[in-house]
Simulated scan of single mutants.
Amino acid sequence: MMRQLPSLNGLRAFEAAGRHGSFTAAARELNVTQTAVSRLVRLLEDRLGFPLFRRHANALELTAQGQALLSGLTDAFDSITRLTESVTAMRSGPVLTVGVGPTLAITWLIPRLANFYRSYPDVEVRMATGGATRPVRDDWTCTIRRDTDALPGYNAERLFPSTVVPVCTPKLASTLRSPDDLRNATLIVVSDMPNEWPHWFEAAGLGFPLHPAGEVSFESNVMAMQAALDGVGVAIAQIPYVSDALAAGRLVAPFPIVAHTVGSWLLEYRAIRKEDPALLAFRAWLHQEADLARQVEIVLGRANTNGSARRSAGHPPRD
Rank of each mutant, 00 (worst) to 15 (best):
G93I: 04
L113Y: 05
T107E: 11
I110Y: 04
G99M: 15
L113A: 03
R91F: 09
T97C: 01
G93F: 09
S92T: 13
L104Y: 03
M90I: 10
V98K: 10
V98R: 11
P111Y: 00
I106M: 07
I110G: 04
V98H: 08
G93C: 07
L109W: 00
R112A: 12
L104W: 03
Y117Q: 04
R112I: 03
Y117M: 02
L109R: 01
A114V: 04
S119E: 08
S119D: 13
P94H: 14
R118Y: 14
T103Y: 05
M90N: 10
N115F: 11
P94F: 13
L96F: 07
N115R: 08
M90L: 13
T103E: 00
T103C: 02
I110V: 03
T97R: 01
T107R: 11
R112F: 12
W108M: 03
P111R: 00
S92R: 12
P111K: 01
L113T: 13
M90F: 14
L113C: 06
T103K: 01
L113W: 09
T103L: 05
P94R: 15
A105S: 06
A105I: 06
M90C: 15
S119P: 06
T103H: 00
V95M: 15
V95T: 15
A105Y: 10
L109H: 01
P111G: 00
T97N: 02
G101M: 05
A114G: 10
V95H: 11
P111I: 02
I110P: 08
R112V: 13
G99H: 15
V95K: 12
S119R: 09
Y117L: 04
S92P: 09
V98S: 11
M90V: 12
W108T: 01
F116N: 10
A114W: 09
P102Y: 05
L109S: 00
V100L: 04
G99A: 07
L104V: 05
F116T: 12
I110W: 06
F116Y: 14
L113P: 08
P111L: 01
N115Y: 01
N115L: 08
Y117N: 02
G93V: 10
T103A: 03
V98I: 15
A105P: 03
L96S: 06
S92E: 13
L96G: 04
T107V: 08
S92W: 09
L109V: 01
L109E: 01
L104N: 05
P94W: 14
R112D: 09
G101Q: 04
